[in-house]
Structure formats: structure tokens, C-alpha cells
Simulated assay, not measured.
Amino acid sequence: MESVLTELNLMQGLVAAFVLSGLIGWERESRNRSAGLRTHILVGVSAALFIVLGENLVTNFAKQDDQVRFDMIGILGAVVSGVSFLGAGAIFSSQRGEGAKGLTTAASLLAVAAVGMTCGLHLYVLATGATLLYLVTLGPLGLLMGAKKGSGPTEED
């Protein structure tokens, strides 16, 4: 029973990542971007799960043998590398030479990975604050930049 309660406690990070990543995904979905609600939730929750699993490995196995080493920084780096690979798939060049498209979507995938990792570490205030900053960047700041250029929301997405 204790192990079930422990796992339920660990699920808090995944649920928080689900909600916060979902907010960012909802914003992307509402703008009809290539990566929307489900993609952002999957990336955010997966990042949180990798952190929870890594932390659990350290907690459960590091004490058993001094020769076993765990690198939590390596887990962070692996998540960033994996998400960057996904982000690269979201970026494409216009055939008309108008430049790259999908940069903001790729950046938002990296952002939800960071939020997910933060939730996996149970740093919920930090994760919520970062999510709010991301939403301001994607929403009002994007509208402001579009109005400044006189063309509506930016098309770099």
C-alpha cells in the first residue's frame, strides 16, 4: 500500500505537467499550428516522467552500490536533445525563399519540455510562473509584435 501511495505522490508532477503543458498546447492549437494540444501534453508529461524515473532510480539504487553512478544532468540533456529533434521536424523552409517556418512551434515544444522537467522535480511554482511567461510571449507579446509590424500576429510560427 505504501508503494501505491508513493507512486500516487509521484503522479502529482505528471498531472501538473499535463495541465501546464496543455495550456501552452491549447494556445498553439487555437492558432492552428502543426503541434497542438496533444503534442504539447505528450512532450510535457514525458519530460516529467523521465525526471521522475531518473530521481526514482537514484533514490532506489544509488545506495545499493557505490560503483553505480547516476547522472540527473544527463537525463535533462537527453530530454532536451530528444525534444530538439522533434522541434527540428516542426521547422521547415518556405519554397518561396520567405525563410523558416515553425520556429515558435519548435520553441514551444522545448518550453513544455522544460515545464515538464520542472514539474517532475516538483517545483510547481516555478513551472507555473514559466508557463505564464510562455503564454504571455505566445499571446499578447505576439499580438503586440504583429501590430507593430502592421500585419497581425507574426507568421514565424
Results as ranks from 00 to 15, higher is better:
67 Q>T: 12
68 V>P: 10
68 V>T: 14
69 R>L: 14
73 I>Y: 13
74 G>E: 13
74 G>C: 13
75 I>A: 03
77 G>S: 13
77 G>Y: 08
78 A>S: 15
78 A>N: 15
78 A>R: 14
79 V>A: 07
80 V>Y: 01
81 S>R: 06
81 S>D: 07
81 S>W: 09
83 V>S: 04
83 V>T: 06
84 S>R: 14
85 F>G: 06
85 F>W: 09
85 F>D: 05
87 G>M: 04
89 G>K: 12
89 G>V: 11
90 A>N: 03
91 I>W: 03
91 I>P: 02
92 F>P: 00
92 F>W: 15
93 S>C: 09
93 S>Q: 09
93 S>W: 12
93 S>L: 10
94 S>I: 03
95 Q>C: 04
95 Q>N: 04
95 Q>I: 04
96 R>N: 10
96 R>P: 07
97 G>N: 13
98 E>L: 07
98 E>C: 08
98 E>M: 08
99 G>M: 10
99 G>C: 13
99 G>Y: 10
101 K>G: 02
101 K>S: 03
101 K>R: 08
104 T>Q: 07
106 A>Q: 00
106 A>D: 00
107 A>Y: 02
108 S>N: 06
111 A>G: 03
113 A>V: 00
113 A>S: 05
114 A>T: 03
114 A>Q: 00
115 V>K: 02
116 G>T: 13
118 T>P: 09
118 T>Q: 13
118 T>R: 12
119 C>M: 14
119 C>N: 01
119 C>H: 05
122 H>W: 10
122 H>C: 14
123 L>P: 09
125 V>A: 14
125 V>F: 08
127 A>Y: 05
127 A>E: 01
128 T>W: 05
129 G>C: 15
131 T>L: 10
133 L>P: 04
133 L>G: 12
